[in-house]
């Protein structure tokens, strides 16, 4: 039940795009057609589901103050605080995982690989993924399960957001927009309006 709450909260209330602006760059650039948006959304959700718990383990068993007690014993470990390394290690885990995933998909499912193609390497610099890892660190979840649900929920929220946006932009192709506003300008204003719609969820009581 706790986990379900966390999931709904991270999909709707704390939506990655509309309340934190994570992953805006690829969100604006790739939301021109529903098909590609769908592929990128799927890839982001999967990478977040995997990297957030991975980074959670790293944070709690290597980086945090006193986290190395399994290796050095309680006394020694309390003097070691590696948290200044967290940015470098988080991004290395994400980049390595994306690289691994790319090789894996290429080997076992060439059709999916062709579909996702250029989007896979792009995911390494998608702020939503790094943002997920940093929020995980800030909120200090109790178990690795919670971290996984948070990662999945956040990725899923991003997926929904980019799908809605792509659908709207496909319809917009037929309307007569002022010249200066075409393309990114209008995309931002639409995202703003969608964000206002999503603000409704912030009134939800989750307890």
């Amino acid at each position: 039940m706790e986990l379900l709450k966390l999931f709904i909260q991270s999909v709707f209330i704390d939506n990655m795009v509309f309340s934190f602006f994570f992953g805006m760059c690829s969100y604006i650039a790739v939301s021109k057609s529903v098909k590609t948006a769908n592929g990128l959304g799927l890839a982001v959700t999967f990478v977040m589901l995997m990297t957030v718990p991975l980074n959670y383990l790293l944070e709690n068993y290597v980086l945090k103050a006193g986290a190395l007690s399994w290796l050095l014993g309680e006394e020694m470990a309390s003097t070691v605080d590696l948290s200044f390394l967290s940015f470098i290690l988080f991004i290395a885990v994400i980049a390595a995982f994306v690289q691994l995933l790319e090789m894996f998909i290429e080997k076992f499912s060439p059709s999916l690989y062709n579909q996702l193609g250029i989007f896979l390497p792009l995911i390494a610099v998608n702020c939503a993924i790094m943002g997920g890892a940093l929020f995980m660190q800030q909120r200090a979840f109790a178990t690795v399960g919670e971290a996984a649900v948070f990662g999945f929920g956040s990725g899923f929220g991003w997926w929904i957001a980019i799908l809605v946006m792509a659908a709207i932009r496909e319809r917009l192709a037929y309307s007569n927009v002022p010249k200066g506003l075409r393309g990114p300008g209008l995309a931002f204003i639409i995202t703003g309006l969608l964000g206002m719609a999503f603000m409704i969820f912030s009134g939800f009581q989750m307890n």
Binding site: G180, L181, G185, F188, T191, G192, M196
Partner: peptide
């Protein structure tokens, strides 16, 4: 102070910027 306002402001800045720089406009 809420997120949507920031998005709309950026949208408007881009609009103004593209109106003054005509060669950036999309067809």
């Amino acid at each position: 102070l809420f997120p949507p306002a920031a998005l709309i402001i950026v949208g408007i800045i881009i609009w103004v910027h593209r109106t003054t720089n005509k060669d950036l406009q999309e067809k």
